[in-house]
Design a binder for these strands. Structure first.
Length: 512
RNA sequence: GCGGGCGUAGUUCAAUGGUAGAACCCCAGCCUUCCAAGCUGGUUACGACAGUUCGAAUCUGUUCGCCCGCUCCA
């Protein structure tokens, strides 16, 4: 499947998310603020389910990973050690003519070796060919007389002789401006530079900074991991695509510490492991891809990095990055803090700084992917009950059919697991029995009780919020068999089941 | 941040500078023995702030937000 094979438009999805209470614009009554979103009553349940599935798969179903919850504001030197204070900013410049925008560190310049008054030609890193052509065409010169210089080494007062990468005119480039992507604040009531602190731009550094304490308390042996879920903040230049790129977002990060030399096999292991998890929560193999970083795309300290990509309606985008970061982070913290962050291997009697594999996932992106994946519009034949996929862009169902909107979540992700419905509401014994069943099931799962309107309408309401199972109490329940019907969201088929067997049946379907 | 487009009930759409309407949704009541039935009633909107005008949803400016392209990224 490709991104453009979707029946979903983002508009339809955004509309449903608002109407049913998944996602709201933050502080909407004041006009909202770009890059921040709130999760409504259904969204928060869904998001908690995503995190719970991850947390369970990491810290409960395996013995070699422990959890951590570190603070959002940490000592500023953490960010010096990690390189965020120095490097987490991208100087950018614009071309006034073409309206293009470039990262200054990715632009290089061909400059005449002897003649400072000659025009200079900018080009994209590793792609000097267009600039060489312009030397011939525009300056009537010879490329051999020119030398490569980084754009950032060109003095600002020489910009009027600089020809942009995508133009033939000099003087169209603006000066590079730095964008620090970290949110800054002050610790204590006095706003002075000595009090500056940052909201964390990733949760990972909290794990590295507590590496020593965790090691000395839980007696773990390499390889082992520390997992953390939490908010992170980045002052993105331009948030876009609904919640996909937000300024406040939630991460699920694992730092898996390994013996140096096992990096490649452990990296591959975690990529495979994580793809299995995505399939389990409802993202099919056909829409998932690996984007393997190579060469310049790889950070200098990393030996491997694979992004796990999903085909969104707006394009194929990253959900998670899995990086083999060597021992860069722990080494940096050891040097900056002066505290030893070594691991003592009891078996080999060696001391070393472990290497690390970092699967780092964005919760909000996964939530958005799951919503895109789950959303479908269907047509139901009124006579036969046959379900077919609705035609793209059709406003109405064809004659003899009715439309149905479904969020076909994996049951472990669905905000509500079960809806309990009395067949009608004006017969007290039915209502009483339904309440009893509802209260029993609510002890184990998030359930929904609804007695309003016709039962068919109530089923459709549950379809639209993705509830996998509907339990209906009818007259037979109280008069004959103490059994209920269970209706499946996807097939709309019903079976009859004794109330005594209900919990086991539901558990089998909805528990992760 | 740059360029373009767009802001009217929860949603989808109306309204010539002159009383803001509809459908669906939602809520209440009646009715209802399994897939959005029906009847009655009800709540809810001109993104914000200025300006022009006797009078602004409508014209102008500013701002905020959304969408698209550039850019960027978990």
């Amino acid at each position: 499947m490709k991104a453009n094979d979707y029946e979903v438009t983002m508009d339809a999805l955004v509309s449903l998310c608002k109407r049913r209470g998944f996602i709201f614009q933050t502080s909407e009554i004041y006009g909202g603020i770009n890059g921040f979103w709130d999760y409504g009553p259904l969204g928060v349940e869904m998001k908690r389910n995503i995190k719970a599935c991850w947390w369970k798969s990491m810290t409960q179903l395996r013995e070699d990973i422990v959890g951590l919850d570190s603070s959002i504001i940490m000592h500023p030197r953490v960010w010096e050690a990690s390189g965020h204070v120095g490097n987490f900013k991208d100087p950018m410049l614009d071309c006034r003519e073409t309206k293009g925008r470039y990262r200054a560190d990715q632009i290089f310049v061909l400059k005449h070796k002897t003649d400072d008054s000659a025009l200079m030609f900018a080009y994209h890193e590793n792609a000097p060919a267009p600039a060489e052509k312009k030397i011939k065409k525009v300056a009537k010169g010879d490329a051999a007389d020119y030398a490569e210089v980084a754009l950032l080494d060109i003095p600002l007062d020489a910009y009027d002789k600089l020809v942009g990468p995508d133009t033939n005119e000099p003087g169209t480039l603006t000066e590079p401006r730095a964008f620090n992507l970290m949110f800054k604040t002050y610790v204590g009531p006095v706003e002075e530079s000595s009090n500056v602190a940052y909201l964390r731009p990733e949760t990972a550094q909290g794990i590295f900074a507590q590496f020593g304490n965790v090691c000395s308390t839980v007696r773990n042996k390499v390889p082992f991991g520390i997992a953390q879920i939490g908010k992170a903040f980045r002052n993105e230049i331009n948030p876009r695509n609904y919640t996909f790129r937000s300024r406040e977002f939630e991460q699920m990060e694992l730092e898996f510490f390994i013996k140096p030399g096992t990096d490649a096999e452990q990296h591959e292991y975690w990529v495979t492991e994580r793809l299995k998890w995505y399939e389990k929560v409802g993202l099919p193999e056909g829409r998932m891809h690996r984007d393997i970083h190579e060469g310049d795309a790889l950070a200098h300290y990393a030996s491997a990095c694979t992004d796990i990509m999903y085909d969104f309606p707006f394009g194929t985008q990253e959900l998670e990055g899995i990086a083999a970061r060597g021992n860069f982070d722990l080494t940096q913290h050891q040097e900056t803090s002066g505290k030893k962050l070594e691991y003592h291997d009891e078996e080999t009697k060696e001391r070393y700084i472990p290497h690390v594999i970092e699967p780092s996932a964005g919760v909000d992106r996964i939530a958005l992917a799951l919503l895109c994946e789950a959303y479908r519009e269907e047509w139901i034949n009124k006579e036969t009950g046959e379900i077919s996929t609705a035609e793209v862009g059709a406003k109405r169902a064809p004659e003899g059919h009715e439309a149905r909107t479904v969020l076909a979540f994996s049951p472990c992700i669905a905000p509500y697991k079960v809806a309990v419905l009395p067949l009608v509401k004006n017969k007290e014994p039915l209502v009483a029995k339904a309440r009893e069943v509802y209260e029993q099931l609510s002890k184990r799962w998030k359930c929904f009780y609804d007695q309003t309107g016709a039962v068919g309408r109530r089923y459709r309401r549950q379809d639209e919020i993705g509830t996998p199972l509907c339990v209906t109490v009818d007259f037979e329940t109280i008069e004959e068999d103490n059994a209920v019907t269970i209706r499946d969201r996807d097939t709309m088929k019903q079976i009859r089941l004794p109330i005594a067997e209900l919990e086991a049946y539901i558990s089998n379907i909805v528990d992760f």
